[in-house]
Simulated assay, not measured.
Amino acid sequence: MTVRAAWLLTGPPAGQTRTDTRLAPVGTYAPEGELTTREGVLAGGSPLVATGVGPMKVQLGIGRALVQGTNAQGAYPVAVTAPETLTVTDGNPQYSRLDSLVLRVYDGLFDATGKNEVAVELISGDPAPTPVEPTLPASCLRLWTITVPAGASAGTGGIPWQIALADRRRYTSAYGGIIPRGWGSTFTGAYDGQYRDNNGALERWSATANSWQPYPFDSGWQTLTLATGYMQPAGHGMPAAWRRIGPMIMLRGRIGPTKAGTTIPNGQTIFTLPAAARPAGGREFAWSSPRDQVGTGPSVCRVEIQPTGNVRTYEFWSPPQWISLDGVTYTAD
């Protein structure tokens, strides 16, 4: 037997053996609900790869997966231990169709088949001008979709496998593990703190925000709201902004008085940082500022970030025309 499943009754004709239990991925996997598991393929090598091996024949390679049944059934661990070859039905004379290559579990305790086994199967879609993938029965995991052109048969050259196969493998992992990237990864997380790989970027599920978020958290550049009387000096690069990546906070941009010909006085609150960008306990920085209005030379300006988020000047040699936030970096803790 080359397609095995754990947690099925023993025979007839198949069912679970001790070898099945050793080969199948038994364990606790990523949840999708209180009693349901995220079904999918287990990463490792090139699991369950489909390959065209004849004009109308497709072969599924070895690998392991988890197939979720109904809530009452639970999830079935499955192992394909040798390649399985299937024959695709000839194409419709007029329209193309989409067939799905699947893993399907039969459990006589929950369905009317009277069988206790798992199989690799082809489920045919309906021919149509714009065909869609077939709806799958219960306890069935879609792995690949095959485009079957109109009139395709062994006698007409068969299926153009290089363009006909579409990867529909979704992936799963053990509970607490990072779910690998795969088709169907645009899914809702099951719990706060779940992780997934999204094309090489790590994301964390936030139950509060009900969304996947970059990890470490990246706010992107957020424009600062300046206090009355302050603005970005004309022609001076990026607007004043903040960005948080994990616990690290960065500032950028330049700030000067709105009124031309004036300088920044001592003790003025220039802007207030939002809660996400405030350092615990506050911070102090010394910035080099431009030549002041009376021409006494460059000014070194000390700036204070208060725990409330207020950012104010509180000491300098002479009042500056503007201050630069470029290169200011600190941690929130």
Rank of each mutant, 00 (worst) to 15 (best):
M1A: 15
M1D: 07
M1I: 03
L9D: 12
T10G: 12
P12V: 13
G15M: 02
T17W: 02
R18P: 06
A24C: 13
A24L: 02
A30M: 15
A30W: 10
G33M: 11
G33T: 08
T36R: 08
R38P: 00
G44R: 00
A50Y: 00
A50E: 02
V53G: 01
V53T: 11
P55I: 07
P55T: 15
K57N: 07
G63R: 01
G63T: 03
R64E: 01
G69Q: 02
T70R: 07
N71F: 14
A72Q: 10
T81M: 00
T89H: 15
P93E: 11
P93Y: 01
Q94H: 14
L101S: 08
V102F: 07
L103S: 04
L109D: 10
D111W: 06
G114C: 06
N116E: 01
V118M: 05
V118R: 00
V120R: 00
G125M: 09
E133F: 04
P134V: 01
P134E: 01
L136C: 04
P137N: 09
T147Q: 09
G155R: 11
P160Q: 12
R169M: 09
R169E: 02
R170S: 06
T172Y: 13
S173H: 12
S173V: 13
G176F: 06
G177N: 01
P180V: 02
G182M: 02
G182R: 01
A190Y: 00
G200I: 00
E203P: 13
T208N: 13
A209K: 07
Q213R: 11
P214C: 10
F217Y: 15
Q222K: 10
T228K: 10
G229E: 07
Y230R: 07
Q232V: 08
P233L: 13
A234H: 03
M238H: 15
A240V: 12
R244L: 12
I249F: 12
I249H: 03
R252L: 05
I255Q: 04
A260Y: 05
A260T: 13
T263D: 09
I270Y: 02
I270E: 00
I270Q: 00
F271S: 15
T272Q: 03
L273A: 09
P274I: 04
A275N: 14
P279K: 11
G281A: 03
G282E: 05
G282V: 04
A286T: 11
S288Y: 15
S289P: 05
R291P: 07
R291N: 14
D292W: 00
V300A: 02
V303F: 05
Y314F: 11
E315S: 09
P319N: 08
D326S: 15
